[in-house]
Design a protein around this nucleic acid. Structure first.
Lengths: 215, 215, 215, 215
DNA sequence: GATGAATGAGCCTTCATTCAT
DNA sequence: AATGAATGAAGGCTCATTCAT
């Protein structure tokens, strides 16, 4: 479990020992990267928005790209690590009697995270296509760790007869699509016109029906 | 129906009267924009990849941004126009006896388009967040035209008792998520390891179950 | 007198055997050069204003600079040649009984020329500082030919006791300043607010007084 | 008199707090603009001549045009402000008993300025035709301020019976032509061949005769 | 540690000129 | 003779990064 320890360590140290200046820089960078993209944002703009001198950015981050990675890498880990650590254990320990409970808990948990880190996640998603390092990290963490855990979880509930008998990979993908679609719509449509409780319930209703093992 | 006529006109003239050089430029630009993003690609790179002088790009497109729009706007229209024009009519004319037929036809149709225009669509998706004009166009075409048609289609099948009684908006969103997820996975996972027929069937099976009206 | 013959030849052939297109080019170029300067005007602009293709300009004038010289050199000659040829002879042949008649005739003559060739003269004056060839031509024609003739004329009237005894060079310069100043004001102040007859008379009155050989 | 105070302030602060680098840039720019014109000079040339990197120019002047204006605007003001402030007051306070004293003082004063700022004034004169902002500034400062003062001065001496009764505007124009012509010749003909004392005396002699009220 | 002036490579674009049609 | 597409050098300007203060 030393791998998880690493992750936890990485999670914790993150933003704690930053100076005020450094926090300003990161906040400004996230905002600008989200709006205009990494390549479309100049370090000058970031410095101005952060209220620091341009040189100060480079005292903390050797490179503009370092700044991006400093923003995006911990977010990626924070976004996904809990899954690895907690969810699986809870499932296996039968803390979630049924699949629906598990989904609801996970959605709630992740929704909260998005609320706090919306722009940073946006940067992560927007920049992944252009930065091989990011893609690599992403594949390593998600494609190998997270995906494998989810497969296990699905198999667990299949064994319990709670969900449909079907290639677990397809089930995972289907479920992920549905939830991602839910989050995407929620964040794109924004406050007005989005009845979250209704949409979440509808989504879960359909998802359950989709995965129901018809007698 | 003059609105549709316009769209059809726009669809047809598109790439026909381009010179060879111009085609090279567009192809090179799509490739580079897909890989490194619009801001991350220099016009010099595009010119080199296209085998033309840098100045030649600007004879055909006044601006680098014009080049992006020339690539992305017709793609957006081509990607979505068929929906507006054909799908709805076919549904209303009962060419599709049931919802599954409709979904299968649409997926096949759109899959073919993606096969031919994969990189261009990738550029479109990647650049939308950074270009307000694109976002605007997208909202105008999708948010207003396409979305409205799909709502109608869903209501149509609900009236026929073919799919679940539930807010049509939720149904549309759920269906779109599932299909987008299917396409995304297909294009990310790439040839090896993707059994398309199996995945498509699984996806549709689950989708049907999700929308099945019988308790 | 073969030198004068050359000049006359140069004067005559000028604009006669030009095609319509060529005339358009020259007219457009003069207009643009006058407004934005030689360096500030692009051959594209000239071509557009002239209604010809960019390449056409270079069929007639090997270089952009050739076009400038083709405009400006004959103007320089036309502007000054008459002085050399006619004025001096008339003075020596006593066609002008007194200095005033000579000045009035010269002003009238040159005013007419400026009326027809205002913009071209403007280009000439504006561009001389930036083109050594032009400066050279100017010095050769004015500084040596014209200036020498005027010295002679001044001496002639001094000998006749019509104008003040003073270094002829100073007299020429003074007279030139006054007349240039008259023309400059007339063309800068433009129609409204310029009473030409009054100003000319005042100018000549003062000039006469300045050069009056006080008994 | 707050308007004058402004002008004086503008005069004084000007070039004092410039860094060495900035001075080099300005000096190099003046030299090049004088020789090849604003449009004909590249920022690269200026940087090379100034011994700085091209980017350095743009740290101090946002635009190439800003650099031109930074050179030319204060010169225009310095060239003309003294007239406004001092000359008129001195005349009205009878510091100059007669018109000749006034002219001699003004010529001496302005000659000194030209000695120090020759090239800058050359740039000013050469570029005015191509830059509407400059033309505007020039008209505002000369056409309205300076011209009005000179009219007053001429009227003053006319009232004293020192100069001819004639439209003051004509007198001002005549005088200005003569003096401008004197300065122009002095600076064009250059050292050799120009006997300044003689020419100035001749010029003033003729000017006095021109404006002499006694028939 | 923080600054911001300085750098020069690199950016998008325009230019005068050429040449196949 | 006239065109206008093509060129690639050069233009003004911005960029990420360095470093003396």
């Amino acid at each position: 479990m030393s791998k998880n320890d690493e992750l936890i360590a990485e999670l914790m140290n993150g933003s704690e020992k930053m100076t005020d200046r450094q926090k300003n820089i990161v906040v400004a960078a996230v905002e600008m990267f989200a709006e205009k993209g990494y390549s479309g944002t100049s370090t000058k703009e970031i410095a101005q928005k952060a209220g620091v001198a341009e040189g100060t950015i480079f005292r903390h981050y050797k490179t503009k790209k370092d700044l991006l990675l400093a923003i995006v890498t911990p977010t990626m880990i924070k976004l996904l690590a809990p899954v690895i650590i907690k969810d699986l254990n809870k499932v296996l320990n039968k803390e979630f009697e049924n699949f629906e409970d598990f989904i609801r808990e996970m959605v709630a948990n992740r929704a909260e995270f998005l609320n706090k880190n919306g722009p940073t996640v946006r940067v992560l998603i927007q920049e992944i296509p252009f930065h091989p390092e990011l893609k690599e990290q992403f594949i390593k963490h998600i494609g190998e760790e997270v995906y494998a855990r989810y497969l296990q979880i699905v198999k667990h509930y299949q064994d319990k007869g709670e969900i449909i008998e079907m290639e677990p990979a397809s089930v995972v993908r289907f479920t992920a699509s549905v939830l991602l679609g839910y989050f995407a719509a929620k964040h794109v449509i924004s406050p007005a016109g989005w009845n979250d409780e209704l949409e979440l319930n509808n989504t879960i209703t359909m998802l359950k029906a989709a995965l129901d093992p018809k007698k």
